[in-house]
Every structure is written in C-alpha cells, then in structure tokens.
C-alpha cells in the first residue's frame, strides 16, 4: 500500500506515468508553464498536430512559446481532465480546454469569444519517468469556428 502512495520505483509503471501526466495537466490548469516543463525531459518533443510542422519541436522552445502566448491571449484558460488512460507505452489524457480570448493570438484576431474544445494529449515517458514526448490532437476547425463566429 505504501508503495502506491509514494512515487518510487516500486510503483507499477502505469501509476507513476499517470501521476506524471496529471501533474503536467494540473500545472497547465495553474497556468504555470514553468511547472509544466518541469515534468518534461530536456529533449522532450512536442507536436501540436493540427498546426502541422510549425507546431512541432522541442517542448522547451516550441511548447513554451505556444503556451505562453496562449495564456497571454486567453487569461481564463483552464482545462478539465476527463480521463487518464494507459495505452501500451503511453498515457492518453482526455481533457476539455476552455477559455475566453482577450488578445490576438497569432493571426487569430480577438472577438472576445470563448471556446470549449476536447483535446487528447498523448504522453510518452523516459526511463526516469519524465515526459519525453507529447502529441496533442483537437478539432482545430471547431476551435477556430468558436472564436470567429
């Protein structure tokens, strides 16, 4: 029982991985990009898949830039973790992200609209249990529609 309460090597892997993924998402809820990145390895790669090539790269560069800008444009940005599921060698977090746009976000001019959109985060971990790869999926068309309608 004690082994389950503490994050040590005796934990079944999936529990440590799920804990790590939830820590990351909670840091996102707190809008602390620093804490989000603290859960990631130095070489962690990220792919904001609907954004194509410009949404891919090292999380400490590409991820950080996008999240800082997103939080700046959507000060009420928050998420609800719907489920955390282990899938083979990864953890799938199903979350609903919501927020109201207060500033322009890239080419997306603000109309003061709010959005609420389901996202899937796929996390892979390294040997030390840090996040080593993040892949994010959402319906970008629907996201844009909510903000521009």
């Amino acid at each position: 029982m004690e082994a389950l309460k503490h994050k040590n090597q005796q934990d079944p892997l999936f529990i440590a991985w799920k804990n790590r993924s939830v820590e990351f998402m909670k840091a996102y809820q707190d809008q602390s990009v620093k804490s989000m990145l603290a859960n990631c390895s130095k070489d962690c790669q990220i792919a904001f898949n609907p954004l194509g090539q410009q949404g891919k790269g090292n999380v400490h560069e590409v991820g950080k830039a996008i999240w800082v800008s997103l939080i700046d444009s959507f000060p009420s940005l928050d998420n609800t973790i719907n489920a955390v599921i282990k899938e083979n060698d990864s953890i799938r977090c199903e979350v609903t992200i919501h927020g109201k746009q207060e500033k322009d976000f890239g080419d997306l001019k603000t109309k003061g609209h709010a959005f609420e959109e389901d996202h899937i985060f796929i996390f892979k971990m390294d040997d030390k249990g840090f996040i080593n790869d993040i892949s994010i999926y959402w319906n970008h068309e629907n996201f844009i529609k909510q903000l521009t309608a």
Partner: peptide, 21 residues
C-alpha cells in the same frame, strides 16, 4: 479504503495482494 488516486485505476486492474499484502 486505500486513498489511491483513482485516476490511476481507470481501465486498470491492480493486484489486490500488492495493494494490501
């Protein structure tokens, strides 16, 4: 009963003998 974060057990079966040996 066990104060295990229950999200860790979503879609999982955990050996009871490991939880409460």
């Amino acid at each position: 009963l066990f104060e295990i974060p229950m999200f860790s057990l979503t879609d999982e079966r955990l050996d009871f003998t490991e939880v409460s040996p």
